[in-house]
């Protein structure tokens, strides 16, 4: 019978250890923070350039400049959380399997998936989280202050936004841990890791842009089969554009997002445990 309080204290220990490690090389930590924020700033510059040439992404989609920047901020929030908490660990899974280090994780009296998913925390990735928050606040202030059709924010919207950002993180985590778990079968998964980047690349734009003969099937597949389009789109729509200019509301999709999150978590748990059952230790 697992004791839940101990999971929390183990997690806090992980967080503290990672922070101690990061603070040992303080200058390196600051450079890492600065470089990831600069990268994001360059990206922002790219979209500023696009909005020099257009008022909207897609005709009548409602993704104007500030709506889109709120969307971009949401992408930054979700991705920085995934990068801070899960990425450094999932990257290591295939190495753990190749070297047999997974044996030590299996022997610990704690859930293996929990242990190998959260052992390391990359605190410098949270610099982008801060940058995302700034961008989000600026965009929301711009939208609520504009004279025509100002955005109305309620505490409920903000609470739902936070909740759906966390759902997005959960979906991406499920995808990532499932892909890493497949390295138990394959022995190595470097190309699968590239695959992860290419798949999540689709989540970074408003889903309305996937339109037409080729776009519709893509949108369908990345919403219902591999639900990466939901990750950013649902929270971003809730906070920035609850009702599309066409009149359709975000809520049906938001309800589906609940199912998708629960489904992804359950599926990844199943994949992880099935893969674990096939683990043949490589250590001596």
């Amino acid at each position: 019978m697992p004791n839940h309080a101990s999971y929390l204290s183990v997690f806090l220990t992980f967080a503290r250890n990672s922070l101690v490690r990061d603070m040992t090389f303080r200058i390196n930590f600051l450079i890492e923070c600065a470089s990831s924020v600069t990268w994001t700033a360059m990206n922002l510059g790219f979209y500023l350039l696009i909005f020099q040439h257009t008022d909207e992404i897609g005709a009548d989609t409602g993704w104007g400049k500030w709506e889109f920047f709120a969307f971009l901020a949401t992408t930054m929030l979700v991705n920085s959380l995934v990068q801070a908490f899960f990425m450094p660990n999932c990257e290591d899974v295939s190495e753990l399997i190749r070297t047999g280090g997974l044996d030590f994780a299996l022997l610990k009296p704690i859930d293996t998936q929990f242990l190998i998913s959260l052992e390391k925390i990359d605190w410098s990735s949270l610099a982008n989280f801060a940058a995302g928050l700034v961008l989000l606040v600026v965009s929301l202030v711009r939208m609520t202050a504009r004279p025509e059709s100002p955005l109305v924010l309620t505490p409920t919207t903000v609470a739902l936004y936070v909740f759906y950002v966390l759902c997005g993180v959960a979906i991406l985590y499920s995808l990532m841990i499932s892909l890493s778990a497949t390295s138990i079968w394959l022995g190595q998964n470097r190309s699968l890791y590239d695959f992860w980047f290419y798949i999540t690349n689709f989540s970074r734009y408003p889903m309305e842009i996937y339109d037409g003969r080729w776009g519709r099937p893509l949108r369908w597949a990345f919403t219902y089969l591999i639900p990466v389009l939901i990750v950013v789109n649902v929270p971003a729509q809730i906070i920035a554009r609850p009702i599309a200019p066409g009149g359709s509301s975000v809520w049906p999709l938001a309800i589906f997002a609940l199912l998708a999150t629960a489904g992804s978590l359950a599926a990844s748990r199943w994949v992880f445990q099935t893969a674990l059952r096939n683990y043949r230790s490589a250590s001596s």
Partner: peptide, 20 residues
Amino acid sequence: MRFLPIITQIFLWFAVFQAR
């Protein structure tokens, strides 16, 4: 595989051109 990221770029620009 390296052509895959271009797909999203193509859709992005299509949307921009539609808006214009």
